[in-house]
């Protein structure tokens, strides 16, 4: 990075540190913070969407849809995350490739499953084995988003389902008395009011999601924890210009600061949202706001 970094063994103190902290490897480490934040920014809304769909399905009037919603939340919540990430993602990837294979290579005569191997024609590979590394990484990243969304969507569905049940029945009855249809009461009365009940549960999920990103490396996506582990590992002079002992403590302390800062920021944001949502609600928090305003 800097001109004086050509021979780090002659440097010491701050100069050495400035060279050390700007190696290509450290740049990948800094970039991985962006990866994690991007993952969270995309996953959270998608998971919420999955959750909303799951919760709505779980209280549908048509039995098969209700069963679908209930079994989605029950099954996904029951499977350990790591099992999901090790096996489900590979299965998902294979399902995509299998579908592409059926469309793109109809006259393929070899079996797709050969023992433990999974072989599709070259044109059906996802991504194509000739595509650039960043496409492979983007594909791994989107698989990760989808898997996170499915897992956390199931938990969110349960939270939202409970929140929907918590909206006072009297509110719904009033809406029905005004002649609103089922759909209208759902969108105009139930959904706007349920968020205040859902928020504590959803904020829990968000906190857990923030800390779940190390599962990413199982999918080949390098997150902050992977790089901290890699950079903090003992480096000998033979394989690195910057030999050092085991610095896991320092790197993980850095991560600790990052995660604490991030969660405390989230905490503050949730507090504001919560105050907004309680406004005018028939809850204790809403009542307190009314009293304070008087």
């Amino acid at each position: 990075m800097f001109s004086y970094c050509t021979d780090p063994s002659t440097l010491d103190g701050l100069k050495w540190l400035s060279c050390y902290l700007t190696t290509g490897k450290h740049m990948s480490f800094y970039a991985s913070f962006g990866t994690v934040l991007a993952l969270l920014a995309i996953t959270a809304p998608v998971a919420l969407l999955f959750g909303f769909a799951g919760a709505s399905a779980a209280r549908a009037r048509i039995a098969p849809i209700r069963w679908l919603g209930k079994s989605y939340t029950a099954i996904v919540r029951g499977v350990p995350d790591i099992a999901f990430f090790l096996f489900f993602v590979i299965a998902l990837d294979q399902a995509f490739e299998w579908m592409r294979h059926k469309v793109k290579c109809p006259d393929w005569d070899h079996p797709i499953r050969q023992g433990s191997d999974f072989i599709v024609c070259d044109a059906a590979k996802l991504p194509l084995s000739s595509s650039a590394q960043w496409i492979h990484e983007a594909y791994g990243f989107s698989l990760a988003v989808l898997t996170f969304a499915i897992v956390f969507g199931a938990f969110a569905a349960n939270v939202l389902f409970g929140a929907m049940q918590a909206v006072p029945r009297a509110q719904m009855e009033t809406a029905e008395a005004y002649g609103m249809s089922h759909r209208q009461t759902f969108w105009r009365i139930l959904v706007p009011q349920m968020w205040t009940y859902a928020l504590p549960g959803l904020s829990n999920l968000w906190m857990i999601l923030i800390k779940a990103t190390p599962l990413l490396f199982l999918l080949g996506v390098e997150d902050v924890v992977y790089w901290a582990r890699e950079l903090g590992a003992t480096k000998t002079a033979k394989f690195s210009d910057y030999p050092h002992g085991n610095w896991h403590m320092q790197y993980f302390f850095g991560l600790l600061v990052f995660y604490l800062a991030f969660t405390s920021l989230s905490e503050r944001v949730f507090k504001r949202i919560s105050a907004r949502l309680s406004h005018g609600q028939a809850t204790a928090a809403g009542e307190a706001q009314r009293k304070a305003a008087q």
Partner: peptide, 18 residues
Amino acid sequence: EGAYAPWNFVNDAGEIDG
């Protein structure tokens, strides 16, 4: 794997080496 020097490891530039 990229974590098993001298067989395979990640060098200072962030590339696989060894």
